[in-house]
């Protein structure tokens, strides 16, 4: 851990958290609607992975704002997307669950559980064919690890030695279903260890996530095939804004809140004398400024025009031919 790293990690995690809190606020105000899945509590996973896996392609599911921000997506266009505005990263057509930016090699934002995994595997096949070393990063939840598409994906990736990192974000719950009720394993590495090298890390500790991804990605870069990483983490909020999350106990929540990724990084950095309190206050102020700017941008942006309803279905050549 060094000062530069602390700054990057802290800034991005705080940015993620404040972004989510603002999104929640504006959901209540009616500026944001639909399914809004917050990442609060899980910031270390989003930030640690994206900082370490800084090249290559990224495929993710619907709980993805912080991952997108950590990948470098501008908070303004993410917030504008949540507001359903024309200036949003998906022009207001996708919303919270569907953030895409090929310029960042960020390919969504898929809301069919595990639906992005075979796609990520296909991308990894292409990268191997193209001689690209960085490979593909695919993140998914404990719930997704029970889907057929997951098992097909680890099998194919392993059989063909594809350059892909499967990252299981185990927050124990798929909506209201605990992983232990529907899987013989609570430790998801058990599902993959006969197929590829597996790693575990503490999903509440950004440094551990970062270090583990850094270590594991060497295997991919050396052309040795896929890897699987599991991080245990916890979402502080319900599954989405439509879920109160009543199926979880206060005690369980407390255990994880005590390990809060942002607070703990701060404490550790101060203990190690890398920085002082004031330093974090400055970063907080910067975050506040950036988030307010994002909300202002989103709120003042125009809505899409009705004509846009029929746009973007096909590429240019077909757009005018097919009604």
């Amino acid at each position: 851990m060094n000062r530069a790293r602390v700054e990057k990690f802290y800034y991005l995690m705080k940015l993620g958290r404040e972004f989510e809190l603002k999104a929640k606020e504006h959901y209540m105000l009616g500026d944001i609607a639909g399914f809004l899945h917050l990442d609060i509590g899980q910031e270390a996973v989003s930030v640690g992975t994206m900082q370490a896996f800084d090249k290559g392609d990224v495929f993710t599911h619907y709980r993805e704002h912080v991952l997108a921000l950590a990948r470098g997506m501008d908070p303004k266009i993410v917030m504008a997307e949540l507001f359903g505005k024309k200036t949003g990263v998906s022009k207001g057509k996708g919303g919270s669950m569907h953030l895409f930016d090929p310029k960042l090699d960020f390919y969504g934002g898929d809301a069919i559980v595990a639906g992005h995994l075979p796609i990520a595997v296909g991308c990894a096949y292409a990268r191997k064919l193209q001689g690209e070393k960085a490979g593909v990063f695919a993140i998914f939840g404990d719930g997704a690890s029970n889907a057929g598409a997951f098992f097909e994906s680890i099998n194919i990736a392993s059989a063909w030695k594809l350059p892909i990192m499967f990252f299981a974000e185990n927050n124990y719950y798929a909506i209201g279903t605990h992983i232990s009720w529907v899987s013989p394993f609570v430790d998801l590495v058990e599902k993959a260890k006969n197929y590829m090298p597996t790693f575990t890390c503490d999903g509440m500790d950004v440094c551990d996530v970062y270090n583990t991804v850094t270590q594991a990605k060497e295997i991919i870069e050396n052309g040795l095939g896929p890897v699987f990483i599991e991080a245990k983490t916890y979402r502080y909020e319900g599954h989405s804004m439509s879920d109160a999350g009543k199926y979880r106990s206060e005690e369980e929540m407390e255990i994880f809140k005590r390990k809060d990724p942002i607070e703990n990084l701060k404490k550790k950095a101060i203990e190690l004398n890398l920085v002082d309190e004031k330093y974090f206050r400055e970063l907080d102020a910067k975050v506040e400024y950036v988030i307010n700017e994002a909300v202002e941008f989103a709120a003042s942006s125009p809505e899409p025009e009705i004509e846009e309803l029929w746009e973007d279905l096909f590429c240019k050549e077909c757009e005018n031919v097919i009604p």
């Binding site: 998906s90 057509k93 996708g94 919303g95 569907h98 809505e303 899409p304 009705i306 309803l309 279905l313």
Partner: peptide, 8 residues
């Protein structure tokens, strides 16, 4: 496909 924006 159904778009997110309410107006659309």
């Amino acid at each position: 496909p159904i778009p997110y924006n309410r107006k659309l």
